[in-house]
C-alpha cells in the first residue's frame, strides 16, 4: 500500500560540497565532480561465448567490446573492460533500464548484473589532475603510458578503483565502491589542495 517512489541519495551527500578548496589562484589545478545520471551494468561472457557476445554487442550498438583495458563507446553508452571477458556497460541518461536493454540483446551470451548503485563515479580533470592522482595511485598516467580510452583497475589510497581517461585535458573518471565515497573524496581533495581544487555541482 505504498505510493510515492523513494528519494535517491548520493553516496557523497553531505560529504562533498561544491566550491573552491586548497590553494587560491586564478584557475584550479584540479576539478572534481560527482557523476550523476549513470547506469552501470556488469557483463561477463558465458563460457566460450565471447565471440557471439561481441558480435551481438556490435550488432546492437556498433561497439567492439574491448579485449584489453580500454573503454569503447561514447558518452551515451560505453563498454569498459573490467577483467578477462568482463565489462562494465556505462550509460549516461539512458532512457529506460539499461540492464533490461542489454538483456534483450545479449541474453544467454553473458551474465548481467546491475551495478549502478554500487559505485560512486568521480570525474577528475585539470592541468594537475595527474599530479594529484599520482599521490594515491601507483599506475603510470603519463600521456606516453595512459591515453584517452585507456582503463585501469587499481588502488587509490588503499581504495579499489577503476579509472578511465576521457580526453587529453586530461579528464579522468574514477569508479569506486559506493561505501568508500567519503574516504575517496577526502583523499583526492587533500591530494589536490596544493594545486587548488574546485568541486563542481554533480552532473
Amino acid at each position: 500500500m505504498s505510493d510515492t517512489a523513494l528519494a535517491a541519495r548520493s553516496p557523497l551527500a553531505g560529504l562533498l560540497r561544491p566550491g573552491r578548496q586548497g590553494a587560491r589562484g586564478d584557475l584550479p589545478g584540479v576539478v572534481v565532480q560527482e557523476r550523476t545520471g549513470l547506469q552501470i551494468v556488469s557483463l561477463a561472457a558465458r563460457k566460450g561465448q565471447e565471440v557471439p557476445l561481441m558480435a551481438a554487442v556490435r550488432a546492437a550498438w556498433g561497439i567492439d567490446l574491448p579485449t584489453t583495458p580500454r573503454r569503447v563507446g561514447d558518452a551515451r553508452l560505453a563498454f569498459v573492460w573490467s577483467g578477462p571477458s568482463q565489462w562494465l556497460a556505462v550509460a549516461t541518461d539512458w532512457p529506460g533500464d539499461l540492464e533490461a536493454a542489454l538483456r534483450a540483446h545479449l541474453g544467454g551470451l553473458g551474465s548481467l548484473t546491475d551495478q549502478g548503485d554500487g559505485r560512486v563515479v568521480l570525474r577528475v580533470r585539470g592541468p594537475h589532475a595527474r599530479d594529484a592522482l599520482a599521490k594515491g595511485m601507483a599506475i603510470d598516467l603519463h600521456p606516453r603510458a595512459f591515453q584517452p580510452g585507456d582503463v585501469a583497475a587499481t588502488l587509490a589510497a588503499h581504495i579499489g578503483v577503476q579509472i578511465w581517461q576521457l580526453d587529453e585535458a586530461p579528464t579522468y573518471e574514477m569508479a569506486a565502491f559506493r561505501s568508500t565515497a567519503g574516504s575517496l573524496c577526502d583523499w583526492i581533495v587533500a591530494a589536490s589542495a596544493e594545486y587548488g581544487v574546485e568541486i563542481v555541482e554533480p552532473g
Binding site: 561477463a44 558465458r46 563460457k47 548484473t113 551495478q115 554500487g118 565502491f177
Partner: peptide, 14 residues
C-alpha cells in the same frame, strides 16, 4: 570447466 560467472553486489543493494 564450469560455466559460472560471479561478481560482488554488496554495494549495489542497501
Amino acid at each position: 570447466e564450469l560455466d559460472v560467472q560471479m561478481i560482488s553486489v554488496t554495494e549495489q543493494w542497501a
